[in-house]
């Protein structure tokens, strides 16, 4: 599900968190599978759920950015993320997930994330002027990929993205960085570097960058 985050494969001790976190990821505790960690939590190990939730932090963030209609508001995304983890914790503590018989924790986790995300999409930010609700049925929900598949796909997307970024001009790179920070065209216009450009120009620029990305991906 979380294509491109580079976080697949954690269940077997591999991780793309990068940098210092990689060292921690490879500690013996983190080599345990999700299901083993749940069993450890039930046996009274206080840290087990911390390790488990930390694995899903970045993936959940990516999932929400990809699937929900909230694109710019980081604070709102954090609230939804909290709701997801709280629900998972509540259900785990209530014994709703059985590591031996309920399939993978990963699929179970994403089912909860998907339900909460859809709930927000349909009920909380949908309004008469919200155009996004109309397109929700156009894009089918994706199936949960295995950690290995995720890792391969993430590596591929990341490699292609870095290839694209190397080809961009300094102005285009700055524009992409601002978009990555969640800035709107209007906010970007407020930046001295882009103050002389109209919103339409910025839109066209981003569109051209997208075309470049598409070309390289193919």
């Amino acid at each position: 599900m979380c294509i491109g985050t580079g976080l697949g494969g954690h269940a077997k001790g591999r991780s793309a968190y990068g940098g210092e976190l990689n060292k921690r990821q490879l500690m013996p505790d983190d080599l345990r599978s999700d299901e083993d960690l749940i069993l450890a939590d039930r046996a009274g190990e206080t840290n087990a759920l911390d390790i488990l939730f930390r694995r899903y932090d970045k993936q959940t963030h990516f999932y929400l950015l990809n699937e929900s209609l909230i694109k710019k508001d980081d604070a709102f995304l954090e609230d939804i993320k909290q709701e997801i983890f709280l629900k998972v914790l509540t259900k785990l503590r209530a014994g709703a997930f059985k590591p031996a018989g309920d399939g993978s924790f990963r699929a179970w986790f994403y089912t909860i994330a998907q339900n909460i995300c859809q709930n927000y999409n349909y009920w909380r930010i949908r309004g008469p002027k919200n155009i996004y609700g109309l397109a929700l049925d156009l894009i089918p929900a994706k199936s949960v990929l295995s950690p290995q598949e995720e890792e391969e796909k993430a590596a591929e997307i990341k490699a292609k993205l870095s290839q694209v970024l190397a080809e961009l001009s300094p102005e285009e790179t700055a524009l992409m960085q601002m978009l990555g920070d969640g800035m709107t065209y209007k906010q970007i216009q407020g930046h001295p570097e882009f103050a002389k450009h109209s919103i339409d120009y910025l839109g066209l620029k981003v569109y051209n960058i997208r075309k470049k990305i598409r070309r390289i991906k193919r």
Binding site: G4, L65, I157, L161, G180
Partner: peptide, 10 residues
């Protein structure tokens, strides 16, 4: 997907 990757990384 690409935009979500950019946002997550940032």
């Amino acid at each position: 997907e690409t935009y979500a990757v950019m946002r997550t990384e940032a």
